[in-house]
Each structure stands twice: as C-alpha cells, then as structure tokens.
Amino acid sequence: MSLVLDPTAQDLLFREARTANTFTDEPVTDEQVQAIYDLVKYGPTAFNQSPLRITLVRSPEARERLVQHLAEGNQAKTAAAPLVAILSADNEFHEELPALLPHFPAAKDMFFSERPVRESAAAMNAALQA
C-alpha cells in the first residue's frame, strides 16, 4: 500500500524535519501568518474544540520581556527570530463549543464541566493543532 502524501512532503514533514535553532532576518508577513493559521485551524480536534491560542510577538519591547523568561539556551535564538509565536491551550475552550459544535451544544456541559477534564482535553487537542 502506498501513501497518498507525496514523498517530498513526507520527507519535509517527517524524515527531515528538525527543530529550528537559527533563523534568517527575513520578516514574516501578516499574509504568511494568515496562511499558516488557515491550515492550523482545520487541525483535528475532539468536538471541534479548537483550544489552540496563538500569541504573536513582534515588537522589540515585547520580545525583550519574553526573552528574560526563557531558558538561557533559547534566549539568543528567540531574540533573533523575525517573529515569535507563543502556542498555548485555552482551558476555557468549552465556552465556545455551542458556536463551534452547533449540532451538539450540550457537549459543553456534558463533557467539559469539570476543569481537570477540560485541561487534559485542551492540552491534547492544542498539541494536535500545533
């Protein structure tokens, strides 16, 4: 059985993918950010919960505040990156479920009324989106 995904894409995504440790100084445009988000928003999440939240850090002042909270090994590369995206999970995602899952609005309270359940679901599903 062969995979439908082109071998070049397989290499890019799985076989040759590595953590970026250096960045060019080429700016990241709003259009590029939007194109990336337009793919991420369709990531598979249970109950369409989409708990991923993205905070973009562009200004030198915001970057300076962020860098001081990072591990020493991450400070220089983060300071030099043209854009920093902080990915987080919204533990209150269930408040949006009636709009995101209109055919089953009861899911909000039926499955996610308890905070530990929401936190676990948010962490797993935000990781899927990321």
Rank of each mutant, 00 (worst) to 15 (best):
Asn21Arg: 15
Thr22Cys: 04
Thr22Phe: 03
Thr22Gln: 13
Thr22His: 08
Phe23Thr: 02
Thr24Gly: 14
Thr24Arg: 13
Thr24Lys: 10
Asp25Pro: 00
Asp25Thr: 13
Asp25Phe: 00
Pro27Glu: 08
Val28Tyr: 02
Thr29Val: 03
Asp30Leu: 09
Asp30Gln: 12
Glu31Lys: 03
Gln32Tyr: 07
Val33Asp: 05
Val33Trp: 12
Val33Asn: 03
Gln34Lys: 14
Gln34Ala: 15
Gln34Trp: 05
Ala35Trp: 01
Ala35His: 11
Ile36Phe: 11
Ile36Leu: 14
Asp38Pro: 00
Leu39Gln: 15
Leu39Ser: 12
Leu39Gly: 03
Val40Asn: 04
Val40Gly: 09
Val40Glu: 07
Tyr42Cys: 01
Tyr42Arg: 09
Tyr42Phe: 15
Tyr42Leu: 14
Tyr42Pro: 09
Gly43Trp: 02
Gly43Cys: 01
Gly43Ser: 12
Gly43Arg: 00
Pro44Phe: 00
Pro44Trp: 00
Thr45Pro: 05
Thr45Tyr: 04
Ala46Arg: 08
Ala46Ile: 08
Ala46Tyr: 01
Phe47Asn: 13
Phe47Leu: 04
Phe47Glu: 10
Phe47Gln: 05
Phe47Asp: 14
Phe47Met: 06
Gln49Phe: 00
Ser50Ala: 15
Ser50Met: 15
Ser50Asn: 13
Ser50Cys: 13
Pro51Cys: 02
Pro51Val: 01
Pro51Gly: 01
Pro51Tyr: 03
Leu52Ile: 05
Leu52Phe: 02
Ile54His: 05
Ile54Glu: 05
Ile54Ser: 02
Ile54Lys: 00
Thr55Asn: 02
Thr55Lys: 13
Leu56Ile: 09
Val57Asp: 10
Val57Leu: 11
Val57Ala: 10
Arg58Trp: 03
Ser59Ile: 07
Ser59Asn: 03
Ser59Cys: 04
Ser59Val: 00
Pro60Tyr: 06
Pro60Lys: 08
Pro60Thr: 07
Pro60Arg: 08
Glu61Gln: 14
Arg63Glu: 04
Arg63Thr: 13
Arg63Ser: 04
Glu64Ser: 12
Glu64Trp: 01
Glu64Leu: 08
Glu64Lys: 14
Glu64Thr: 15
Arg65Glu: 15
Arg65Gln: 15
Arg65Asn: 11
Leu66Ala: 05
Leu66Trp: 01
Val67Lys: 06
Val67Gly: 09
Gln68Asp: 12
Gln68His: 08
His69Ile: 00
His69Ala: 11
Ala71Gln: 15
Ala71Tyr: 07
Glu72Arg: 12
Glu72Ala: 14
Glu72Ile: 07
Gly73Gln: 06
Asn74Asp: 14
Asn74His: 09
Gln75Phe: 01
Gln75Tyr: 04
Ala76Gly: 03
Lys77Gln: 13
Lys77Leu: 12
Thr78Gly: 11
Ala79Ser: 13
Ala79Tyr: 09
Ala80Thr: 01
Ala80Cys: 04
Ala81Phe: 08
Ala81Asn: 10
Ala81Ser: 12
Ala81Gly: 12
Pro82Val: 03
Pro82Tyr: 02
Val84Ser: 11
Val84Gly: 08
Val84Leu: 06
Ala85Pro: 10
Ala85Arg: 08
Ala85Leu: 07
Ile86Met: 05
Ile86Tyr: 05
Ile86Pro: 02
Leu87Phe: 14
Ser88Asp: 09
Ala89Gln: 06
Ala89Gly: 07
